[in-house]
């Protein structure tokens, strides 16, 4: 399977970032990484239309995933403002589709992320 779009991984923990990047790139998908919400927003603005999926950690320094989502949905130029955002979090409070939908995200996946779940997300959002 070939993928047209890149994945933007926004995650503050270096190990997790590296681990997830390895898994995603192992699936043959191009990954860009950002270590907080602010960096993520800048990357999205710089390369509009490049990303098929944003994997968003929620608890991050500088700008949290929730604030970053708010900024992407409201401020970033279209089309990136409509980019699918999936919350990646260990916090069970956000393991709730309606809750994350209220925050402007398209879904959630619990941490630790299973490669199978990542694969199905990427299939869903980044396919040709």
């Amino acid at each position: 399977m070939t993928y047209m779009h890149k994945v933007l991984l926004i995650e503050d923990d270096e190990f997790t970032r590296f681990m997830m990047r390895e898994i995603i790139s192992g699936l043959g998908v191009e990954v860009e990484i950002a270590s907080n919400g602010d960096e993520g927003c800048k990357l999205l603005e710089k390369q509009p239309g490049e990303f098929g999926l944003v994997l968003m950690d929620l608890h991050m320094p500088v700008m949290s995933g929730i604030d970053a989502t708010l900024k992407i949905r409201n401020e970033v130029q279209d089309p990136p403002s409509k980019v699918p955002i999936i919350a990646v979090t260990a916090d069970v409070t956000y393991h709730n589709s309606s809750r994350v939908a209220e925050l402007g995200m398209n879904g959630f996946t619990p941490k630790p992320v299973s490669p199978g779940t990542l694969l199905s997300l990427i299939d869903q959002y980044c396919a040709a």
Binding site: T16, M19, E22, P112, V113
Partner: peptide
């Protein structure tokens, strides 16, 4: 603690998976 311990553990589990696969 919950967050701080879970985060590296996630990474460890992820890498173990990468090695196993």
């Amino acid at each position: 603690m919950s967050h701080e311990i879970r985060t590296p553990l996630n990474a460890i589990m992820g890498f173990l998976h990468l090695i196993a696969t």
